[in-house]
Design a protein around this nucleic acid. Structure first.
Lengths: 218, 218
DNA sequence: CAGTAGGCTATACGCACGAATAGGAGTGGC
DNA sequence: GCCACTCCTATTCGTGCGTATAGCCTACTG
């Protein structure tokens, strides 16, 4: 990603945005303060407002920049090698750590909607490819399954704290990362429901829907 | 769930805790205020402090209560029918909506660790059962895969906002819920990687680990 | 029936925040 | 030479927060 420019070479606006990503990512949007961000960026609090109008405006700028990074990162990967699939996952993984922290936090907080949509969009093609080798037709649209797969892939990062504790190793450490990769590959390559069980459940769902078109147990 | 006691029958302590769960769940921990919680509970702000010492103490009480609810809910389900598997998922689903919102928010914010561990623990047995019918031995411990599956199952709720937008329907509505169930069953019953691809990736991981035991690309 | 512990309120303190305003300093255009 | 503009700082305002304390009231206890 752009060879890592030295902070003093960046415009104040870029420094503020980078500092904001760090603070938002580490503390969350609410707990991060414009004063703290300004201090990290080496500017006055007023300048933050001058460039971004408000805290929310700053967040939106961070979101936009993140989408740009993901797109760039994905194009890069696609140009390099023959893109073995899992584009979205890899694209999200190749983002530098501070921005990735921001990404995960923002998504969990309900922000960065455009980013999620972008990731889901990137997931569609290789899900489509995987569909070629399945025996039965998909039960739901590929876009919907892509959104689900995307959400699931992101959950590892969003819940990294809990996962690390449960796994007994920091998932962001090299060792944890390898363990994680193994676990994910294992899960992705083995169905947790047999086709018969799945068929039964789907039939039951159809039945329930036919008998009471609206309403639900909950 | 305990036949839903009328608010005026609950002790003030319970009313405060319930109100806190609602506020924390809807606004998040930071944006929720003790004053607002006290008002919803129909008590003075001072009483909140009297019972829970601090905002953090109130959160911990909510977490503890949530674990109790999940345990109770799971025992209930297990006693009722023969538990067709997916215990943790079902247990989490059977929690009433306000508490479920709190649960998802708390987990996303890194709180409620005991709850996550409990859910992962509930997932182990049925994952073990699914292991019986797989051709190859698992690549990683069942506990680790259970944690991963749990995180993935929770992601649907945590990212419900993004999912609803991407799917074009509110995932918490009856229609969205059915669509979601179909999509999940479909995903759970179809591997996204072939066993050959998975083996190739795992070999590559082994190879990478052997050549450079520490360190990682990132 | 006095004493006391605990549920509960009212009120205030101190602080950190986001937002706003006024103005200085440098710079390119005419 | 000066105007206009942008970048930037210093300072202030008002607000809402978590926390703290002092004391009332009720219900149980011996």
């Amino acid at each position: 990603m752009t060879i890592a420019a030295a902070p003093e070479d960046l415009t104040a606006r870029a420094r503020i945005r980078d500092a904001a990503m760090r603070h938002f990512g580490e503390l969350g949007y609410e707990r991060a303060s414009l004063r703290g961000i300004a201090e990290t960026a080496g500017v006055s609090p007023g300048l933050v407002r001058h460039h971004f109008r408000s805290k929310q405006g700053l967040r939106e700028a961070c979101d936009e920049h993140l989408v740009k990074m993901i797109r760039w990162s994905n194009d890069q990967a696609r140009a390099g090698l023959a893109s073995g699939g899992l584009d979205a996952v890899l694209a999200a993984r190749s983002v530098p750590a501070p921005q990735r922290r921001y990404m995960l936090r923002a998504l969990a907080e309900g922000s960065a909607g455009a980013l999620f949509d972008e990731l889901a969009r990137l997931t569609v093609p290789w899900l489509h490819e995987a569909d070629q080798s399945r025996p039965d037709p998909p039960a739901v649209d590929v876009e919907i399954r892509a959104a689900l797969v995307t959400a699931m892939a992101l959950s590892v990062g969003i819940l990294h704290e809990h996962l690390s504790r449960a796994m007994g190793v920091d998932v962001f450490s090299p060792h944890g990362d390898r363990l994680l990769a193994r676990g994910l590959v294992d899960l992705y390559s083995h169905p947790m429901l047999s086709l018969e069980d799945a068929g039964r459940i789907l039939s039951a769902l159809d039945e329930a829907e036919r008998t009471s078109p609206e309403g639900e147990s909950r």
